[in-house]
Design a protein around this nucleic acid. Structure first.
Lengths: 197, 197
DNA sequence: GATAAATTGGACCCGCAAGTCCAGAAACAG
DNA sequence: CTGTTTCTGGACTTGCGGGTCCAATTTATC
């Protein structure tokens, strides 16, 4: 294992991660083999094990991190600017659009359940993502409360937690049914709940 | 493949399903092999393929159906009797207790994601379960509306859909974090939302 | 009790994909 | 320029687990 990467080396490493991510998005984790990644990225077996010494699991974890970053990135700038009701609705629409486009293949979900949800690595990636997500929503709720648009009696963290749960469940339903009904219902009902005095 | 099962035959078949379910609950799908099932149930390879001719996938599907049935069964009788606020809270507590006890291993979730969410079989099991679940909640909401406890302006199906999404997401969070915070928040916030006039 | 079907045992096959090895090429340090 | 580290290529090994086969044995049916 290399103690330090040259620029060429880290480029190759990045190419492997992105290629693996693309392969997994296209065909699913279950059927993606190291040889597929090798073929797509134009690398060799020894390179794979050079950059991910402990093997496939390490690579999958890197891909999971990569995908987790995209989840929040795809919601910006709206998620960071939840300061008015139109902004909330714009964010809501962006979330729905994002997942509708993604359709029935959620790379992150499938990666995490492949790695096993209880593995420390996978767990860390997920909880980190969820914490950030929930924190940004809670910030939005507090901003709205400060502006007098949301009752200050509501516990921002609790509401944010419920909203996160609704989104996750909505996406889960989308994965199974192919429909965004549940996701939209969850978002809309939650936001309506915030809106009421 | 047998055209008809004798009582002994169907007993064996059932033993295989339950043994496989237990094995999967205990150690996870990923690592459970046909040989493990064989060992636990005291059967032979040929028996496995005798009762599940197309192989592992068919067995896993049978196990998924078995587990799906338990999900609803474990919520009875409360889920079928959502006719007063105390009844709703009792149901809420039962759901939380059920999943808290189950902890981080949701056999159904892991089975479905193993089979691939888009496989027709897995899809059928999940949507069937969700439909029934949602229908019973919606029935409860309508009963409460009729009793004047819930505003008749609320769309029962939509509220039920949001609630289902919240539960699913809450369970998902439980699987990742080991905590029931999100599940409880989702249930409580949703019920509070119904309760308000 | 005979015959046909259902049931059981376990040895065997086979493909595949993860992981290993080593030697050669390229990049870097001084 | 030279020794050293990083990087790359690809052939090879290996273990494992799903799936096949067939012969033996029990169970149903008449």
């Amino acid at each position: 294992m290399p103690t330090r990467l040259t620029s060429k080396g880290s480029a190759t490493r990045q190419r492997i991660i992105e290629g693996a991510a693309a392969e997994i998005r296209a065909r699913g984790v279950m059927v993606t083999t190291l040889d597929d990644v090798r073929a797509r990225t134009g690398t060799s077996k020894s390179q794979l094990f050079h950059y991910f010494p402990t093997g496939k699991e390490e690579l999958l974890l890197a891909v999971a991190r990569f995908e987790a970053d995209r989840v929040l990135a795809d919601q910006q700038p709206q998620l960071g600017e939840l300061t008015s009701w139109p902004a909330w609705l714009a964010w809501r629409d962006k979330v729905v659009a994002r997942y509708r486009e993604q359709g029935r293949h959620c790379p992150l979900s499938v990666l995490v359940s492949q790695l096993g949800r209880s593995t420390p690595g996978a767990q860390a990636v997920v909880t980190e993502l969820m914490n950030q997500w929930q924190a940004q929503i809670a910030t939005g709720i507090r901003a709205m409360a400060r502006a007098g648009e949301i009752s200050p009696l509501l516990d921002a963290e609790r509401q944010a937690a419920a909203l996160i749960a609704g989104i996750q469940g909505g996406v889960l339903m989308l994965l199974s049914t192919g429909r965004t009904t549940h996701l939209e219902a969850a978002l809309d009902v939650a936001i309506e709940g915030l809106r009421r005095p």
